[in-house]
Design a protein around this nucleic acid. Structure first.
Lengths: 219, 219
DNA sequence: CTCTTTTTGTTGTAAAAACAACCGACTTGT
DNA sequence: ACAAGTCGGTTGTTTTTACAACAAAAAGAG
């Protein structure tokens, strides 16, 4: 687990915590590691979560499949990001979604109760982690609201424009790469893949944008 | 402001804090009160927020109107609930939505920085409020995910079933009252009002549910 | 109580999306 | 290298939605 300390240091969760402190905290917070193959479930809807997870390798999707096989991708968790902050609260019920590895992934789990309760040991930075956790969930909250902004658009085209504009804004350039393939993007925006593909090509023909695979350019 | 202390005591934010402490904290946290008429804007998209608000009278909608007049209702804030927790983080940018009073409303604002920094005075319960704030945003996070669950449904009917099921679940009964009129519900689910009204009546005719104004019963 | 405004339901039409089926290009594994 | 699988695009059909316009009922104002 130690080899991930430099990476952990750069995460939002451990921002401002010294290297040597992180090592101590791994013990203090009862950190456990898990490895998942591509396509494997990390957590399943209905489970009760007692740990917060930080992803240190790979990529996860928070998603949900309904009875008819429609998949909705709620969110994407990349290296350095966390999942489970929203389930820290004692009143939070069962997990609403599945968490699945979209690539071979490694995850470190931290015991929630140990994070929230003050520890006696060397964790001078404990309270900073609590505040970081707050900022992390705060950021996730804003990202969910932004996603709602895309989903509340009526047409596939508007959803695409809303999403792609955000990605362009985030990357700070009209050219950018999205972290989804077509099917995943369709599941993320909750539209039909073929209809979306069709719409993308129409938009390209109209000169609104260019794309090649996951590389997009807004014009 | 004092008359709201009993109410504040029952909010999630001040859970576990004694009456007399709340009075002290109102000063300590630099609480300010604001009154808003029905239809008035409390906050506007693009503003920068430095306060967390607790609503003590009335009802607010978090919403966004686009260029073409389409309104999307992101969330509803009722008495005792908070808004702005997600904008506490220093990196959080401008407000993504408008906040509007749907009824005459009264709001108490708390200075964010004073909440997050440790105060010297009588606020023994300060750290409890920080944790409560965490739980509040955590709950809001889950509610956003649930809303995404409704919005990710493809048809108006499915969205309605998803939403109404949740409301039934929450009320613990097949009969329940929703906090929206038809137009607001349509804006909340991001569908056309007339189409939704039509769908609701079809579902009633098929024997799926009964309703009278905002009162619904699932069968 | 009466007039006005708001809310809800209804209908028809045009636009858009979902769905299904298929093809070719590209990957991957053996 | 070859077979199997994945991925993105295309097309046609059916279903659903948005939009617009209107009517009836309810709520609210004076």
């Amino acid at each position: 687990m130690k080899k991930f300390i430099p990476l952990l240091k750069r995460t939002k969760l451990f921002a401002g915590v010294a290297d040597e402190e992180i090592g101590a905290m791994l013990t203090c917070l009862d950190a456990k590691m898990g490895a998942y193959k591509k396509g494997e479930y990390v957590l399943r809807q209905g489970e009760h979560l007692s740990h917060i997870m930080v992803i240190v390798e790979g990529e996860l999707h928070i998603q949900r499949d309904d009875y008819w096989g429609n998949r909705a991708i709620v969110n994407r968790i990349a290296v350095g990001q966390t999942f489970g902050e929203a389930y820290v609260s004692p009143e939070s019920g069962a997990l609403l979604n599945d968490v699945i590895a979209v690539r071979d992934s490694t995850v470190i789990f931290f015991d929630v109760r140990k994070i929230l309760s003050v520890c006696s040991a060397a964790c001078r930075f404990h309270s900073m982690v609590v505040q970081n956790l707050f900022f992390a969930i705060s950021e996730k909250n804003r990202s969910l609201v932004q996603k709602l902004g895309h989903m509340s658009k009526r047409t596939t085209r508007e959803k695409l424009i809303s999403y792609l504009s955000e990605e362009a804004m985030r990357s700070g350039s009209a050219s950018f790469t999205i972290p989804f393939n077509r099917q995943q993007l369709a599941d993320f925006l909750s539209v039909d893949r073929s209809a979306m593909s069709n719409e993308l090509c129409k938009m390209r023909d109209e000169g609104l944008l260019e794309f090649d695979k996951n590389q997009f350019k807004l014009l």
